[in-house]
Structure formats: structure tokens, C-alpha cells
């Protein structure tokens, strides 16, 4: 079941995130050029990496869904993509704040990673409307999976294309490979990355548990013979509880 050990996981997530940001705020060295505003890097970059991994994970679950026809994979894919889109909003907001502080603009077209992320984010914004505009739940699940697989493959190719389009190197303060980071920055950064990944997993599990208990509730209501709340038209996958 999805509801088990959520308390432990939540506590762990909170602990890792708090440690990471405490270290980032108090012990990590200040960036020579940007000063304190550079600290947003510890939120922005891990969030972006986790969101992109979430998109790819959604694609992998979608492959599983098409192979096995097991609707629970569709639900996994849906929840992952949904969460990643929400994180994506956070990435673009923090990116904008950082760009404003560092370069005086809200959006920097010469920063290929940010541009790539925007394109990917815009593509995934259509996932929900696509699901919503297909009524038959079977077809909705299948089409969503085809979308998730195609878009998942698009993520790396898009990053390649956008990066190639920047022959001149913009002064890259954020080095997302982490290789050039001073050690004092490295530890809080990786810790924040782990924390963000844990946050994703925790939220994903909460949402899965929520969907399952809702399905069970509906099934129980049906057994009681009451007019259970009709599912209506929805973009979320329907789980059929036993």
C-alpha cells in the first residue's frame, strides 16, 4: 500500500532539507560576484533536476503502462508528471528571481538550461488539458502515456538543441554539473538535491495514497448502495479499487 511509512519518510525529508538549507545559509561561502542572492541556487537547481527526473520517470511509467496495460502505471506516471509541473513553476519563479538579482533581468534567453526548461515546461503544461479533453478513460490513459513517452524522449534532445544554439558561453555562475563548485558549496548543494528528491518521493507517495483511498471510499459507498459521487469528467486516472 502507498500509505505505509509515510511518517518516517516525511520526517527524513524535513530533516535533510532543513540541514541542507541551514548549511547553505550559514556555512557555505558567499559567491564572490553575487553575494547572498546566489543562495537561491540551492533551491533552484535541485528543484530543476528533480522536476526533469520526474518527467523522465513519468515517461518510463508510461512505457510500463503501454506494455502491461496495468492502469496503476498510468496513475504513477500521472502523479509524477503532475508534481513535476508544479515543481516546474517553482523552478521558473526561482530562476526569474535569481536572474533578476544576478543579471538584472527576469528571464535570460542566453542561459540555455533555463530556456530548455521553459520549453519542456510549456510542453508538459498541455498534459493535463490533453487528458481532460478525452472522455473515454481507457483512451485517455493510453493517449496520455503516448504523450508522456514522446515528451520524455524530447527532454534530452531539447537540451542538446538549445545548448548547441549557444556557441558563446554566457558567464555561467551556475555550474549544474557541480564539478567546479568549491567544497563548501558542494555539500549543501548535494544535500539539497537529496532533500528535494526525497520531497518529490514523499509528495508522490502522499498523492498515490490519496488516490487509492479515494477509490476505496468510492467502492465502499457503492457497496453500501448509495448513489456514490459520480466520477464525472476528470483528467485524473481512475483507479478501480477491489
Amino acid at each position: 500500500m502507498y500509505g505505509t511509512r509515510l511518517r518516517l519518510l516525511s520526517t527524513l525529508t524535513a530533516a535533510v532539507l532543513i540541514t541542507a538549507y541551514a548549511l547553505a545559509a550559514f556555512t557555505a561561502p558567499l559567491d564572490a560576484d553575487q553575494g547572498f542572492s546566489q543562495k537561491i541556487f540551492y533551491v533552484h537547481v535541485p528543484m530543476a533536476i528533480v522536476a526533469l527526473c520526474g518527467f523522465v520517470f513519468g515517461g518510463i511509467m508510461a512505457i510500463q503502462h503501454l506494455r502491461t496495460r496495468d492502469p496503476s502505471y498510468d496513475l504513477k506516471s500521472y502523479v509524477a508528471i503532475h508534481l513535476s509541473v508544479v515543481l516546474g513553476v517553482g523552478v521558473l519563479l526561482t530562476g526569474g528571481i535569481w536572474a533578476r538579482a544576478a543579471w538584472g533581468v527576469w528571464f535570460e534567453w542566453r542561459e540555455p538550461t533555463l530556456v530548455s526548461f521553459l520549453i519542456v515546461f510549456l510542453l508538459y503544461c498541455t498534459y493535463q488539458p490533453l487528458r481532460f479533453s478525452i472522455e473515454d478513460p481507457d483512451r485517455q490513459a493510453r493517449y496520455a502515456s503516448v504523450f508522456a513517452i514522446t515528451a520524455g524522449a524530447f527532454v534530452p534532445l531539447n537540451f542538446l538543441a538549445v545548448r548547441l544554439a549557444q556557441p558563446y558561453i554566457h558567464p555561467r555562475v551556475l555550474n549544474d554539473t557541480g564539478g567546479a563548485l568549491p567544497t563548501g558549496m558542494k555539500i549543501p548543494f548535494y544535500l539539497a538535491l537529496v532533500g528535494m528528491a526525497l520531497l518529490f518521493v514523499t509528495l508522490w507517495k502522499y498523492e498515490m495514497a490519496h488516490k487509492h483511498s479515494r477509490a476505496q471510499l468510492r467502492a465502499l459507498r457503492r457497496k453500501l448502495g448509495g448513489e456514490a459521487a459520480g466520477a464525472g469528467r476528470t483528467a485524473a486516472p481512475q483507479v478501480h479499487a477491489p
Binding site: A228, A229, G230
Partner: peptide
């Protein structure tokens, strides 16, 4: 056999 989901206009 299910909850009142039989929508008119469905196939």
C-alpha cells in the same frame, strides 16, 4: 451496474 455515472451522450 455502477454508480450513477451513466451519462447521456456517452457512447
Amino acid at each position: 451496474r455502477t454508480a450513477g455515472t451513466a451519462r447521456t451522450g456517452a457512447r
